[in-house]
């Protein structure tokens, strides 16, 4: 597995709704093990880009996954009514009938929680079942729900993960941000990732490439090279005053 091997190629992708262009002429390549952050203001077409890549909306241009690639998708949100009778376990079992696999994935996601019960797997499993797996999906907190969505995506054993960041704050494991988690998964599983982010510091820390979007592609490249003040102003329409100064953590090369 090399960094250069492309896993997803997007060529001249355009999407229009009722003849109204929403995205035009987007072209980029995602390689194995690489993380690309998609940034842009609200309504810039970021989620639409994901939906086009997943084949959920009609588009023009090419979306090419390399052969046999498995995709995981974590949507921004899922509306589940509070009284929808489906437990977390039942939701995850829709992806895998193997409870051991499910608990292994949850343990991988929630290291903080797993550490609390280290050395006592029996007790850990019981705790997990009672406090999480047996809960109804609709009553979970935002972070817990996100965890279920990520687990569901991981159970598909993806090579590529598409992560659409919810606009509200996330707290997956107590001490680890969802991005640190994704970063860890990227490293440990060699996952390629396409993530929509609203937080530029996340982009600098966790993405090797950044794609700036505002209906069309305004930049593509390593964040510290392409996120110039002028570009940011073009994307967001005003000066954010955000500069990648020298002290900023440069993205580490992966693998």
């Amino acid at each position: 597995m090399t960094l250069q091997e492309p896993i997803l190629r997007i060529e001249r992708l355009s999407v229009a709704f009722n003849a109204e262009p929403v995205l035009s002429d987007v072209t980029f390549t995602l390689s194995r093990g690489e993380a690309i952050a998609v940034v842009g203001p609200n309504g810039a077409g970021k989620t639409v880009l994901f939906r086009a890549i997943l084949g959920l909306v009609p588009y023009q241009g090419n979306v090419r996954f390399s052969k046999g690639v498995r995709i995981g998708y974590v949507p921004q949100r899922l509306t589940v009514e509070r009284d929808f009778p489906l437990t977390v376990e039942e939701f995850l079992r829709l992806r895998s009938g193997d409870l051991q696999k499910i608990t292994a994935v949850l343990r991988e996601i929630d290291t903080h929680h797993a550490a609390e019960h280290r050395g006592d797997p029996e007790h850990e499993l019981q705790h997990l079942r009672e406090h999480y797996l047996k809960q109804r999906l609709g009553v979970l907190s935002g972070g817990e729900f996100q965890k279920a969505l990520i687990a569901s995506a991981l159970l598909n054993e993806p090579d590529v993960l598409l992560f659409d960041e919810p606009t509200s704050g996330l707290d997956v494991g107590g001490e680890e941000s969802v991005y640190a988690l994704l970063h860890r998964l990227q490293r440990e599983r060699g996952l390629a990732m396409l993530l929509i982010s609203h937080d530029l510091s996340v982009v600098y820390r966790y993405a090797q490439q950044v794609l700036c979007l505002h209906h069309r592609q305004l930049c593509f490249g390593p964040p510290h090279e392409v996120l110039e003040p002028e570009t940011l102003q073009k994307i967001y329409g005003y000066d954010l005053g955000f500069y990648a100064h020298d002290g900023e953590k440069k993205p580490r090369p992966m693998l």
Partner: peptide, 17 residues
């Protein structure tokens, strides 16, 4: 049942899977 539950709760995920 599994396919129906998936399409009921998340039609987008159903297509992805």
């Amino acid at each position: 049942q599994p396919a129906l539950l998936t399409t009921t709760i998340a039609p987008d995920l159903a297509k992805t899977y």
